[in-house]
Simulated scan of single mutants.
Amino acid sequence: MAKLTTARRNRLPKSAFALPGSRRYPIDTKARAANAKARATQEVKKGNLSPSTAVKIKAAANKVIRKKK
């Protein structure tokens, strides 16, 4: 997975994030989508993220992961 610099992250469209309003959890690649799912699970376990928000993140990430090239 290539490093996501601040400049590149800022250029990503809202659709490239699992939570577009807050621009959190980038899902522009399959690898980042898989990582977003893992981070969401971790944050729920820590109590920093609601389970319903994690479901939204995982659904958005799954769309990217299952997309055919």
Score class of each variant (00 low, 15 high):
49 L>C: 07
33 A>S: 06
25 Y>R: 05
63 K>E: 12
48 N>G: 08
11 R>S: 14
59 A>Q: 13
50 S>A: 14
62 N>S: 13
48 N>D: 14
46 K>D: 13
10 N>D: 15
49 L>N: 04
12 L>F: 03
27 I>Y: 03
44 V>T: 04
21 G>T: 14
55 V>D: 11
1 M>T: 10
35 N>S: 11
61 A>I: 01
42 Q>K: 14
44 V>W: 02
47 G>P: 02
51 P>M: 12
66 R>I: 11
13 P>K: 09
36 A>W: 00
66 R>T: 15
47 G>V: 06
37 K>G: 00
62 N>I: 04
34 A>H: 05
5 T>F: 00
32 R>W: 03
58 K>Q: 15
20 P>R: 12
6 T>P: 03
8 R>M: 11
33 A>R: 01
10 N>T: 11
43 E>W: 09
22 S>I: 13
48 N>K: 14
21 G>H: 14
59 A>F: 08
8 R>T: 07
26 P>S: 10
3 K>E: 11
28 D>R: 02
52 S>N: 14
15 S>Y: 04
6 T>G: 12
6 T>N: 11
69 K>V: 07
19 L>R: 12
13 P>V: 11
8 R>V: 09
42 Q>A: 13
68 K>A: 13
9 R>V: 01
25 Y>W: 12
21 G>D: 15
49 L>D: 03
12 L>I: 05
54 A>S: 09
28 D>C: 08
58 K>F: 02
26 P>R: 01
36 A>H: 00
13 P>W: 10
4 L>W: 05
52 S>E: 14
49 L>R: 10
17 F>N: 00
31 A>S: 12
52 S>L: 10
37 K>H: 04
12 L>T: 04
37 K>F: 02
